[in-house]
Design a protein around this nucleic acid. Structure first.
Lengths: 292, 292
DNA sequence: CCATCTTTGTGCACGCGTTCACAAAGACAT
DNA sequence: ATGTCTTTGTGAACGCGTGCACAAAGATGG
């Protein structure tokens, strides 16, 4: 999954825990699949497997909605689909606007999952005058100037931001001022919003970085003792640099730290490689300096 | 953020909590911004504000990495950037393949955040022979047949799946067999993977559904007593249908439940509307039946 | 060198979420 | 009817994550 929950502090909504709410769409998808295959009932065990969760967790999740199962049998698929849809508010059709019709915005506009799940793209909005009028996914792009009018005329409460990072905050403010109270943010920025507005963030770069962390850990854990030692050396060297470089400029300090630490790390990696088979830093042997 | 963590059960990696790991990229981004503005040091309070988190949480997060701050002063921006980058494994350059070059895949390929953050698009792969050779984001798309060779030749460990749901599982199996151990999955499916493989899921539809839930709740909470009563009625009616329709077909049961419940819900909504000002189901008055 | 002021690092308590394990409920067969 | 078997629904224990609040550390000024 992705990251970046910016939620109201834990206002357990009508008794349904946030964690449960986040899983309901997952169950719903699994149930819809079963429904299409005309499966009449499903046990918590089966459904849990399909949704990739623990069966006890699933049962507890459902218990927050009510007692919708039958002991000894399981859950009625169609009935459960309806109950979850209703709970999630998908029995109504939500108009959504997408702001920022670049590569990503266009991809979102074309995403089929919208219409089939209770959402309708009410408008596509972009700041580039050259985009205005152009059809994307069968909908003519409108200019940002129209934003407020579009929101109000269509009674839009959910907005998707797919603009560059720089524009996101301002766009969010205009959306909110016009009546939007829920935002799905794809721009790599932390949005500052007033209370009462929900923001969910999807950040590709963050997801990849989390994967990289685990990947690095996997690569490192075969190199046990020696690597740990080498790491400690690198650590100490870096720390030392920090301590002794107290009056140097930040830039000089960073460079010094890199020089001191990187060779040790490289050594650790080399060691790891000779021990294990092929696991190594994917690109080269000496780690590059970090991005800007 | 997005949803869908499919992680190793909680193998707290080298003492760093998963929740902290998930926030490190956030801090890193805020720090990089400060770095570009040549800010030498930053306090936990300031940085926390920029990253949108509690300052105590931030300090605790950093404490897992070591004591990198200076009391009375704050944190050295450059030094911290380096430490976090190293911890996340971004001091090396990770080659990444993107499978499924549709709208979304193309958007991802064009996403600038890649290169600047330690990732490099090693290849774009698509099953459509017509796509083969076409340049997307300056890289020629390659056919799925080449998948294994590409992975192995480039030492790729991280794969991004942007295919339709139907193809995702098979693609993941091929990726894993070829050596990929971390997957970022954009396809709306739960991937079944062996132990040792990390999967993170980004699901637009799920994010929107979670927003819809909160949105519905906001709309409903102005309508207090009467709505609750009406809801209870709908609940009872639905339950009743379920009970009495025990021997009916699933399809008939669902229809009956919808008929019994929906009018009540509509009533509740109507009540809400007269009481509050303009908050209403965005599209029509009668909730549509849920998606297929 | 001492006093003061700022800011970190963390012990502690609390609450949420997860999981286990089992009793209650119902289906189904005899 | 009665017993057996399956599966739900949930009480209780546990562990992780969060946030408070404060002591320790160090900078800064006199």
């Amino acid at each position: 999954m992705a990251t970046g929950r910016t939620h109201r502090p834990a206002t357990r909504s009508r008794g349904i825990p946030e964690a449960t709410v986040a899983r309901l769409p997952l169950y719903l998808r699994a149930l819809t699949a079963l429904s299409e295959r005309s499966v009449p009932t499903v046990s918590s065990e089966e459904l849990a497997a399909a949704a990739g969760v623990n069966s006890a967790k699933l049962r507890k999740d459902f218990s927050y909605l009510g007692s919708y199962g039958t002991r000894g049998v399981g859950y009625d698929v169609e009935y459960l689909v309806y109950q979850i849809s209703r709970e999630l508010g998908l029995t109504q059709d939500w108009p959504v606007v997408i702001v920022g019709i670049g590569n990503l915005g266009a991809a979102l506009a074309n995403y089929g999952g919208f219409a089939s799940r209770g959402f309708r793209v009410a408008a596509l909005i972009d700041a580039d005058p050259a985009m205005a009028g152009k059809p994307v996914a069968g909908i003519a792009v409108q200019h940002t100037d129209e934003l407020e009018k579009i929101i109000e005329d269509n009674g839009v409460h959910i907005g998707v931001i797919a603009t560059p990072a720089g524009a996101a905050q301002q766009v969010s403010e205009r959306l909110i001022a016009a009546g939007v109270t829920s935002i799905l943010n794809f721009a790599p920025t932390v949005l500052q919003v007033p209370d009462g507005v929900d923001v969910r963030k999807v950040d590709l770069s963050i997801e990849l970085q989390i994967l990289a962390f685990h990947e690095q850990r996997k690569a490192g854990e075969e190199a046990t003792a020696e690597a740990v030692v080498a790491d400690a050396v690198a650590e100490a060297a870096a720390k030392d640099v920090k301590d002794t470089a107290a009056e140097q400029s930040a830039e000089a300090k960073r460079t010094a730290a890199a020089e001191a630490a990187v060779p040790s790390a490289a050594r650790a990696e080399a060691t790891a490689r000779t021990e294990s088979t092929d696991r190594k830093g994917p690109d080269g042997d000496v780690p590059a300096v970090m991005p800007a």
